[in-house]
């Protein structure tokens, strides 16, 4: 059964890939969210601060504008448990920087280049993500 969410997923995915294609063929850079953001946060990418900042402006502004034009509310279904938010945020930020990439860099840009590192990283985070949901949702019941 084809759910509407699969169609939206595919269309949204194609646009995400197009974004990466524009960044690569235009600026010669890999579109990795943790890399673009992390380079500003820790100062390691300050030589390209303008590109990074403008990318982030577009990333925040486009969904805001789209929802405004369509007159609909965005929904994140995010938890309101502050401890979960803090722990998850630290793990995501720390892990992505240690691994030099996240879902966009290693996942989208790495797999499409048949990069062994990208494919391996994706395997590791999918595995850990599955275990995390199993542990925190089904065993501990905190999410």
């Amino acid at each position: 059964m084809i759910e509407p969410s699969y169609i939206y997923g595919l269309i949204g995915g194609l646009i995400i890939g197009l974004a990466g294609a524009v960044y690569l063929l235009g600026n010669g850079r890999i579109m990795g969210a943790s890399g673009v953001i992390g380079g500003l946060v820790d100062g390691s990418g300050l030589n390209e601060w303008r590109d990074r900042l403008l990318f982030i402006v577009g990333l925040i502004a486009a969904p805001w504008l789209a929802l405004l034009v369509l007159g609909i509310e965005g929904e994140t279904n995010i938890t309101s448990n502050p401890w979960v938010l803090i722990a998850a945020g630290i793990l995501v930020g720390f892990g992505a920087r240690l691994a030099n990439g996240c879902t966009s860099g290693h996942g989208v840009c790495g797999i499409s280049r048949l990069s062994l590192r990208g494919i391996a990283a994706t395997g590791f985070y999918l595995l850990a993500g599955g275990v995390s949901v199993l542990l925190f949702k089904h065993i501990l019941g905190v999410i």
């Binding site: 793990l91 691994a99 985070y125 850990a128 275990v131 925190f136």
Partner: peptide
């Protein structure tokens, strides 16, 4: 290790 730490947080939130 980084990818597994990242994945754990990704699943959590």
């Amino acid at each position: 290790i980084g990818s597994m730490i990242f994945g754990a947080g990704w699943g959590l939130a």
